[in-house]
Computed example of a mutant assay.
Amino acid sequence: MPTAAWLEHLGINPDKFVKPQITMPWLTFRQLVLDAGRFSNDKTLGLMVGERLLINTHGIVGYAALSSGSVRQLVDLLQHYLVLRTDLLTVGTSERDGEFRLDFFENRPLEDVRRSIIEATVLAIRNVLDFTTMGTSEIREVTFPFDGDERLAESVFRCPVAYNRDLAGFTLPLAAIDTPLKMANKISFQEALKVCQQELDQLSTEQTWSARVRRLMLQSRHGFPSLEMTARRFHITPRTLHRRLVDEGTSYRAVLEGVRHQLAIQYLESGQMSIQEISFALGYSDIANFRKAFKRWEMLAPSEYLNAHRQ
């Protein structure tokens, strides 16, 4: 199918892509990735795309990365501003046993395009890291939580790659992440950071309030913020936030319910957590309340859903 006809079928107008910021509905983007995989007949689409996502394809975020003072500063940049490139994944970090770990968490179930999106994103970040460190980043291992082509992945990442692990991400030597980068430019970095923040502010104002609340909940790794804390993050009163959500036909409780439903499915299908652990992670003090809520969502108990998924 010709490219123009394909995009028209998906309702995509290429002329809009001249703008610095462009968003696309999830269903449209998912179909775009599925079609690309089908047309190319290539299960390694994510690696093929990620290999082409070099630092100069990331706009102001790439420029800020280029001027970063250290790997730690670069990672901090990604944690705050990756959303300017994609809102499908969130970056998390940890330090243990002399290693610095960079992980990528799904902000929503990525369904049948999960492998393509995560492989492309992780490889794109690896490209950024490799360029800013002039090839001295010393990535020790890359991991993915699904099946994949290990030989091909190792050829593009140029380091050991392991599939079917708990998380997507990679490890670096902790001793190297604070080493000054040769291309560091403090003034350029600060100027680029200002533009990143401006674009983030613009992106936030273009979103619905329910989408902003949902994103904040998904990015919270230590329990969901209350209505009051959420409102404080947005510098408005709880009453104002409640009214704005009602104007959009929803509520804080409804958004929280949707996030819990999404994460419950994701956790169950990952097979990494028990039902009791999932209940606790989703903020239920009583596992019976979680079972009751899940049955309301899926018309099945969590254990029944898990058995059906395994079959």
Rank of each mutant, 00 (worst) to 15 (best):
A184V: 08
D42S: 11
G37F: 00
T240E: 08
A211H: 08
L216P: 10
L7E: 01
A4F: 09
E138S: 08
L268V: 13
A211P: 00
Q311L: 14
T136P: 06
I139Q: 09
A5R: 11
E257W: 02
R96I: 12
G46E: 06
G69S: 07
A5T: 00
R310E: 10
Y63I: 13
S67R: 11
S226V: 14
K16Q: 04
T171Q: 13
G50L: 01
L7V: 02
F170N: 02
Q21F: 14
E111V: 14
R158E: 04
E298F: 03
P238A: 01
E99S: 13
F234E: 04
V195E: 08
E277M: 05
P109A: 15
I60V: 05
R126G: 03
F290E: 02
L78Q: 07
D35A: 00
V122G: 00
K16T: 06
F234K: 08
R215G: 03
L306H: 12
Y305A: 09
L174W: 09
Y63V: 01
I55G: 10
H261K: 15
R140E: 00
R158Q: 10
V75N: 04
S251W: 08
I139Y: 09
L110Q: 11
S303N: 06
I55R: 02
R233M: 08
D87T: 03
T171S: 12
M183H: 01
K19E: 14
H235W: 09
R215Y: 07
E248G: 12
S204E: 15
R291G: 10
Q276K: 10
Q219T: 00
A168H: 04
L174T: 01
S94P: 05
P2E: 06
E99Y: 12
T57K: 08
N41P: 05
L241H: 03
N107S: 01
F144V: 08
M229N: 15
N289F: 10
T143P: 03
D247P: 06
V213K: 00
F144W: 03
Y252A: 10
A192S: 04
G258V: 11
Y252G: 13
N13C: 09
F100N: 00
K186F: 12
V75Y: 11
A192W: 09
N41T: 04
V18H: 15
R85Q: 13
N289K: 05
M24I: 02
Q79A: 13
Q207P: 06
S270D: 11
F29E: 03
F234C: 11
D87G: 05
G50H: 03
I139T: 13
P225T: 00
G37H: 04
H222P: 06
V113S: 05
I125N: 09
H80T: 12
